[in-house]
Design a protein around this nucleic acid. Sequence first.
DNA 1: CACAATTTAATTGTGTGCGATTTAATGCGT
DNA 2: ACGCATTAAATCGCACACAATTAAATTGTG
Lengths: 156, 156
Amino acid sequence: MNATSGNAPDSFLKLENFLCFAIYSTANAVTRAYQPRLAALGLTYPQYLVMVVLWERENQTVKSIGEKLSLDSGTLTPLLKRLESAGLITRRRDTVDERQVLIGLTDDGRTTRKRAEAIPIAIGQAFGCTLGEAKDLRAELMTVRDNLIASIDKAK
Amino acid sequence: MNATSGNAPDSFLKLENFLCFAIYSTANAVTRAYQPRLAALGLTYPQYLVMVVLWERENQTVKSIGEKLSLDSGTLTPLLKRLESAGLITRRRDTVDERQVLIGLTDDGRTTRKRAEAIPIAIGQAFGCTLGEAKDLRAELMTVRDNLIASIDKAK
DNA sequence: CACAATTTAATTGTGTGCGATTTAATGCGT
DNA sequence: ACGCATTAAATCGCACACAATTAAATTGTG
């Protein structure tokens, strides 16, 4: 019996055993990997995700974008204002329900999509795994993510 | 041929296909899941990771901690100052090599370990997967992470 | 030994994330 | 119609991440 035996609460507190650290650290690496390519489009990684959501469908509310990305208005409002200043999106109050703000794309915002198409392919190669492996990993992560979110919600 | 056919660069720009988004979003969920438990110890999630590194070995340099967590001094210096103000760690210049700052634990910092031991077990349950699945997922992620970091380094 | 290159932290500035609160608009029950 | 709960964004404060730069100490080389 020694420190490498792998049982006891001890081993749960070792960094090398942490799934959460693997997730955290990989996420940081993803952002760093995207950064040089996105900088060429004048985007940060979270801004890019917002643009992806809008490229799929224009004129969504802040809430709708927030649900898709699991981000709240505290994060999105300033981010969207920056995208607006950059001339990529539009923000206007919904005339029917004035609580809502509708986010649309400018011509520039739509055009940027073309330039963005090469990025996921390049990053996919940097991941160093096959499309099938990526798909499996993505599915497993989304399951874990949904479980975590469910347990957070349950605690409320 | 339609929008759901799944080929063409088009499908690479769909959020639901993004491995990177799965990683990003799961990482955010991990932080939120840890937050209430860590708040009871007065720690944030990145601070907790630093403590885990120090619980494994005391008196490491900022660089050594940074290598283990893939964080630079721009992130670590202010974080470590906060842990110092909280009375959990000590910071002192190495007298042999005065470029380095050695990070140690206070009695309080060492004691906090005991209270932290229950956390990974509770979070592990929130993940909703078996220990084996977690181990596999962790290994796959670390491979992806290392590939990403290698591709970032290669670009320099 | 001199001194340029390297190494280690700290600093600065920008952009997230998120808890908590606030503001304004809408819905809903009586 | 009234008032109250609910909802949607915005705001505020704090703590990361990280690129870029700076400052100080050490190392390596002639």
